[in-house]
Computed example of a mutant assay.
Amino acid sequence: MTFTLTIDEPRWDASVRTAAEQFPTVVPVIKGNGYGFGRERLARMSTRLGVDTVAVGTEAEIASVREGFDGTIVVLAPLTQEELNRLHPTTGRVIRTVAQADVVHRLAEPNSPDLEVILELDSPVHRHGVQLAELAELAAPLSSVRLAGIAMHLPSTGDRAHAVKSVHTALYELRRARVEFDTLWVSHLNARELRELGEAEPRLTVRPRVGTGLWLADRSTFTVTGTVLDARPVPHREAVGYRQRRLHGGTLVVVTGGTAHGVGLQGSSARGGLKDVLKGALMGAAHGVGWTPSPFRWAGKRLHYADVVHMQVSMLIVPAGVNPPAVGERLNCDVRMTISTFDEVVVSPALPGQEFAPGATFPAAS
């Protein structure tokens, strides 16, 4: 019995293509767990889209993406001095990201590795990037580097006017420092913002890097399910699970899908005020003892955990008076795709020319 991702391939394919049409010169992002679909599958889909460039998160992800994509690969993680000394040869064109002034100076030296790079600038996200005040001193060394453009990683929400303004400010400072470039690589600008940027900068090639908005554009085109392994009635005040929590009666259901699959894991959040801290503490405590609703659904409602989430299964409680699922039935599961892994992926029906048949199942890829 398995924790399964089922993809309606023609509909998912169509949703990805529709999303890609909103972003001319799109650079699909293929990183981590491949947004739940697997990096190899997204690489093959990128080939079918006909794009010339994709982006990966780290150097280690290049090999798996290269299995399904022959074009240019951009590595989003910035190079460090240490990594410059131990880069392994790669197949095809690979562009690295540089986000520190000392790395730029190193690459400009005569005996430095011959790499093609993108210079990442600081943005309102402040994750990493060269400061605008450093551009004047970097103009000369950058002229000796194979520069494939400038990059900015912007906020995905919040004050959009401020985010867009930060791009125009950066472009102004780049020109004032006399840094020569013709391509801007950006993350988290929507279609309208990209169009307006293109109109304001007609001589600049803008390459939007898109992940979530591309692969997860229409979540109705795929489903995640766990298989019921056991279902048994439990009397009122019966103790169950590792924590021996006493239930109010109902049906105890064991379903595939646990922490190893990404079920029951909580995403981090930024520190807020006292109210947010107290709320987070209460939610964390409730989650730790299994009191929060699970992501599994039955009869149109979310079921509650009967115990803390196990590694490969979850124990749920179906309230008394509700007809429970039978062993072998599947429960829909609302998961965060970027942290989820699956025992199998079911593709039905397959598209013409693919290597798997309609309804085929196969292990989930990395």
Rank of each mutant, 00 (worst) to 15 (best):
T221D: 06
A133P: 02
R330M: 01
Y242W: 09
L147F: 05
G267K: 10
R175N: 04
P295Q: 02
F362E: 13
E238L: 14
Q244H: 11
K275C: 14
A163L: 02
V103S: 00
F356G: 06
L216W: 02
P324H: 02
G226H: 07
P78W: 00
L265I: 10
V98W: 00
L138P: 00
L76A: 06
P352T: 12
D218F: 12
R232K: 15
V210I: 15
P202G: 01
V27I: 09
V164K: 02
L229T: 05
T221F: 07
R41E: 11
R86I: 10
F296Y: 09
S348Q: 05
L194M: 15
R209V: 14
K165E: 12
E173C: 05
L216T: 01
S156C: 13
L132H: 10
R48Q: 05
S187C: 11
L184S: 03
V16N: 03
L142V: 00
S269D: 13
A43S: 08
V335D: 14
T72Q: 13
I7P: 10
L132Y: 03
V16L: 07
A326G: 06
V206F: 08
V75K: 09
P155A: 08
M1I: 07
S340E: 06
I118N: 00
V327Q: 11
G262E: 13
D102N: 11
Y35R: 07
T223R: 08
P110G: 06
L331M: 13
T53W: 02
F37D: 08
L115K: 04
V224T: 12
G129S: 03
M283Y: 11
W298F: 05
P10Q: 14
R176H: 07
E329G: 03
F37A: 04
T2P: 15
S143A: 09
R86G: 09
Q22R: 15
G71F: 08
T47Y: 07
D159K: 02
F181V: 04
D122L: 06
Y242R: 12
A148K: 02
E116Y: 00
T90Q: 11
P235V: 13
N323Y: 03
G267H: 09
G241Q: 12
I62R: 08
C333M: 10
G38L: 02
V289P: 00
D343C: 06
G273M: 12
E109Q: 10
T292P: 00
M283S: 10
G300C: 03
R41N: 12
V234D: 10
C333F: 11
R106H: 03
T18Y: 07
F37I: 05
E238P: 12
G262R: 13
A77N: 09
W291G: 06
A306V: 11
H162T: 05
V65M: 04
V255K: 15
V289D: 02
D276H: 13
P235D: 15
R297A: 15
G328T: 01
V117P: 05
S348V: 04
W215K: 05
